[in-house]
Amino acid sequence: MSDGSDFARWVDARWPDLVGGLEDDGVAPDDARLAVAEVLLASRRGWDRRAREEQVDLAVWAEVRERAGLAARPREPAPHAVRARDPRDGPEPWLAEAARLRSARRRRTARRGVVAATVVAVLAAGWAWWAAQPSPPEVREETNELPVAWYAEGELHLDEVVVELPGVEEFVADGDGVAARLRSGDVVRVGADGAVDALDRAPEALTEPQPAPAYLPPGRYDVRIQSVPLADGGWAHLIDSSRRDGALDAVRQSETGRRALVVCPTVSACEPPVTIVGPSSIRLR
C-alpha cells in the first residue's frame, strides 16, 4: 500500500508477520491472507482512533486469529519477523478480494429483503429471524468502581453489571445505560441490566459529542486521553502517563505508565486521580 497513511504503513510492516503467524498455526495460505485482509478492511475506517487508544498489535492479532478459526488469545502479541517481506505477496489483491466478498454479502442481504415483500415471505422471514438470533451477550454482576461506564477487552462495564460485547467502536451514556456503535456499523442500546437492543437511529450524544472543557492533567507526563460528562454535572477525564504529545509512534509496541481517572465536579475543582488497576487499556467512550 502506498497512500502514505499510518494505516498503510502499519499494514505494509505487519502483513508478512500476520499472514506468516497464521500459516505457522496451520491455516492454509489463501485462508490466512483472506482472514488478515478481512480484519484489516473492517478496521480501516476507525484506524486512527484505534492507534491512539488501543494496543493495535494485540487487538488486530486477536481478531485475525478469531477470523481464521483459531483461539483469539487477546493478550498474545502479534508475531514479529516470522516472514521476510515479499513485494510479490502484498496485501492489495487480498484487500480487494475482501471488499468484493463484503459487497457480495451485502447484495445477498438486499435481495433477501425484496423477497420478504409478500405476507408469506414476511412470516417465514420472521420465524427464521427468531430461530437464528444469536444468544444474548453474557452478563455478570459486578459493581463498577468508577463513576462512569467504561470499556476494555471486549467488555462494557456499567454501574452493576459487566456485558460481554466485542467490537464496540464508540459509546456514550444514555439514561441508566449506554448507546454504542459497533464495528459492524450497528447501533445498540445496552440497558442497566445488560440487555442489548438495536437502535434505528444513533442518539445525538453519539453523533455529536459534547465538547470537553479545557483541562490540565496533574502530572508532568500525564496526557488526557478522553473526557466524558458526568450524569450529575462535571466531567471525568482519563489520563495516561505513558503518552506525550508529539511522541506517538505509528506502530506502538507496548504501553507503560500510569492510567488514571480524574473526576472534576466543576471546571475549577477536581478530585485526586484514581489509578486504574487491571486492564492495560480502557475507554470512556
Rank of each mutant, 00 (worst) to 15 (best):
R9D: 12
D12K: 03
A32S: 07
V148G: 05
P74L: 02
T118L: 10
A212C: 09
M1R: 07
W15G: 01
L284A: 09
E255W: 14
A152N: 00
A132G: 14
D245E: 08
P77T: 11
V11A: 10
E145W: 11
A124V: 08
R44N: 00
E271T: 02
E66Y: 06
E142W: 06
E97C: 05
D200N: 13
A247N: 03
P93N: 14
L165A: 06
D240V: 03
R50L: 14
G21P: 06
S135V: 12
V277W: 02
P77W: 08
W61F: 06
V27C: 00
E255V: 11
R67F: 01
A131D: 13
R9Q: 13
P87V: 11
D30F: 09
V122K: 15
W127T: 10
R14V: 07
R252V: 14
A192R: 08
R243D: 10
S103L: 14
R181Q: 12
P265Y: 00
P209S: 05
L18N: 02
A84W: 11
A195W: 00
A214E: 10
D6S: 14
P91I: 07
A84K: 11
D12W: 00
V64D: 04
W235A: 09
V39E: 07
A121Y: 09
D57R: 12
V82S: 02
R220G: 11
T118V: 07
P147M: 07
V148W: 06
A104H: 08
G234K: 04
C270M: 03
D200L: 14
R201V: 15
E53V: 13
S227L: 03
A212Q: 05
N144A: 06
V274M: 12
G69M: 04
P203R: 05
L165M: 10
R285N: 11
A51H: 08
V36Q: 02
A37Q: 09
T143V: 15
G113M: 13
L70N: 05
D30W: 09
W47E: 06
P203E: 08
E63W: 06
A121F: 09
T256R: 05
R65M: 05
P211H: 03
V228W: 05
R88T: 14
L34G: 00
V19C: 10
P209V: 09
T266Y: 08
W129K: 13
D31M: 02
A110L: 13
A131K: 12
P134T: 06
D57W: 01
R14H: 09
G246M: 03
R102S: 08
R224P: 01
D89I: 02
L101E: 11
R67I: 01
T143I: 12
W150T: 02
D31K: 08
D30G: 07
Q253L: 12
T143K: 13
